[in-house]
Nucleic acid binder design. Structure first.
Length: 215
DNA sequence: ACCCAGGGTCATA
DNA sequence: TATGACCATGGG
């Protein structure tokens, strides 16, 4: 078994199944993926709750809302002016594509390229959407992934996004459920012990986390 | 008072 | 290709 798979086994044993992505619908997951860019999830939840309270968690409501008003709902998630534009352009794109039902019939490669064409959707956001809203076997690379696995000595950490994604996807079985669980565990582990960059190694060595099983 | 969080875009070299 | 500035709130 590869080291990447062993880390997965260790994380799963340590934290248990994670039941991701937080969200009641594919659309809510997509909204969350945009709003969580470089932002704590607790702040994203507040913004999503604002949208729900305003009955505005829908493509139509977001496209129709005045920019200032949309931004005010998104305020707790930070970068609210930029995210209002990103969310709007994303929803307009959804409308142009004919909605989620049309997208679900598309090949993953094509869908990924189309997502990346949307202003404000980068590789991680696109892969979050592919994996958690469309259940496609795409491995998400985030800051926690870079930090944790570079400390395990399995990657350098500063490789280009695509390079790392292929590294993980080539090593592991192409299984959406596995990738879903794995990324969630990486985030949970990152929040748990790798918050402070400089102290992560110490934390990993003293809490019985995955690192001990990999070395 | 500082540091950082489940990134992405744009300008510059 | 690769850095750096910028976006902005809330919790530790």
């Amino acid at each position: 078994m590869s080291k990447f798979h062993r880390v997965y086994q260790s994380l799963l044993k340590h934290y248990g199944p994670q039941d991701w992505w937080p969200g009641d619908s594919p659309f809510e997951i997509m909204v969350g993926a945009v709003l969580t860019q470089n932002t704590a999830w607790t702040n994203v939840e507040k913004a999503i709750n604002n949208l729900k309270d305003a009955d505005a968690l829908s493509v139509e409501a977001i496209v129709d809302a005045h920019p200032k008003r949309l931004a005010s709902w998104l305020k707790p998630s930070g970068y609210f002016n930029i995210k209002a534009k990103r969310l709007r352009s994303f929803c307009q794109w959804l409308l142009e594509q004919g909605g989620e039902s049309q997208l679900s019939g598309r090949e993953t490669i094509e869908l990924r390229r189309d997502l990346l064409s949307v202003h404000g959707v980068g590789p991680e956001t696109a892969d979050d959407i592919l994996l958690y809203a469309f259940n496609r076997p795409v491995f998400v690379i985030d800051a926690y992934t870079r930090r944790i696995f570079s400390r395990y000595g399995l990657i350098k950490g500063d490789e280009p996004y695509e390079h790392l994604r292929e590294t993980f996807e080539n090593d592991l079985a192409s299984d959406a459920s596995l990738f879903n669980q794995y990324h969630a565990l990486i985030v949970v582990h990152g929040k748990d012990v790798c918050r402070k960059r400089a102290r992560c190694a110490d934390c990993c060595l003293t809490t019985g986390c995955a690192r001990n099983d990999v070395d």
